[in-house]
Design a protein around this nucleic acid. Structure first.
Lengths: 172, 172
DNA sequence: CGGCGGTCATTGGTCAGACCAATTACGCCT
DNA sequence: AGGCGTAATTGGTCTGACCAATGACCGCCG
């Protein structure tokens, strides 16, 4: 009898199973919290704890007064969660700057046409922002943005000097 | 004043911030639910909804009667959890592989001596692991490790073919 | 004096019920 | 038939209570 597993995960599974079994498709409204509680024979707070987690993961969306709705699977929530927990408070400042340089260097290597950077050589922020945008990789951009936001929170100024930015262009 | 953010995510952030601010390290016991509720001026059910989500993601662990404890980052299971719900997220899978290639390319550009990679050319995993280790940047390595864990959870095989790994070495 | 066992405070787990806020559905009036 | 206001539905939050598991404290006994 090792079924004594956490009731919480059991509840999440139960709700997930019920959603699948009833054949809900993305966009559908799932039963209300009160109805779920009754059908699963658990209290509404327990239902809510499970639903909140599902909502946080982007599985469902809740609308105050409207109900809970199944979301499409390819919403980006999971990427946000990853990015949010990747960069945490104990990241060292030197690592932040170093990581930013690495990320941007990676982007630069992939860059075919350097000319689009030339007009932004005056602005550190615009230069780097443009550089990252050329990659066209959502996850990569989110990670960079998260790291950069952390870097900015340290109140530091430009990551590169103007000379360094010009060096970028010459290395094409 | 667009502070109208969801209270739930605000609560998760608040708890996460408090944990970081108070300098808790993995293994530490965090304040009790009742104390958190009081310090954050929210009710215990709201605290619980946030804590359950953190527990489900593997950020913390709760022991009935004992308290809640911070887990090691390596124990964070949210990667697997999220993947469990997103098995069909093909479009974003390309982002994962692309991000990994970008990170490793950045590491390679910084690499002075390629010879240490030669002995690992037979193993995709060892090759990439060694490559990242040369960077000596904690944050960068952590980001790579998490993205790689997510990539692995999709059950994919090697990121590079053997020919691609050998091409790395030649480009020195 | 020291080890042991029991008691009790602390903490998480769960529930019932209440009230508010936002949305939606319905029916009435025009 | 259409528009509008009211009521029902539904999520959001809180209070309070009780149970269950853990752990610390303290007294008892060897």
């Amino acid at each position: 009898m090792e079924k004594k597993r956490n009731a919480f995960e059991t509840n999440i599974s139960a709700i997930k199973t019920m959603i699948e079994k009833d054949g809900f498709v993305p966009g559908d409204r799932i039963p209300s919290e009160r109805e779920l509680a009754e059908r699963l024979s658990i209290s509404r707070p327990s239902v809510r704890e499970a639903l909140r987690t599902l909502a946080y993961l982007g599985i469902i969306e809740t609308r105050h007064g409207g109900g809970s709705f199944l979301l499409n699977r390819d919403d980006h929530t999971y990427i946000q969660i990853i990015a949010q927990f990747l960069v945490t408070g104990d990241s060292k400042f030197e690592d932040l700057a170093g990581t930013l340089r690495l990320l941007e260097q990676a982007a630069f290597v992939q860059l075919a046409d350097v000319s689009i950077l030339e007009e932004h050589v005056d602005s550190d922020a615009a230069f780097r922002e443009t550089l990252i945008a050329t990659i066209d990789n959502d996850l990569f951009e989110r990670i960079w943005r998260q790291v950069n936001a952390f870097y900015q929170s340290f109140g530091q100024g430009e990551l590169y000097t103007r000379a360094e930015r010009e060096a970028f262009l010459k290395r094409s």
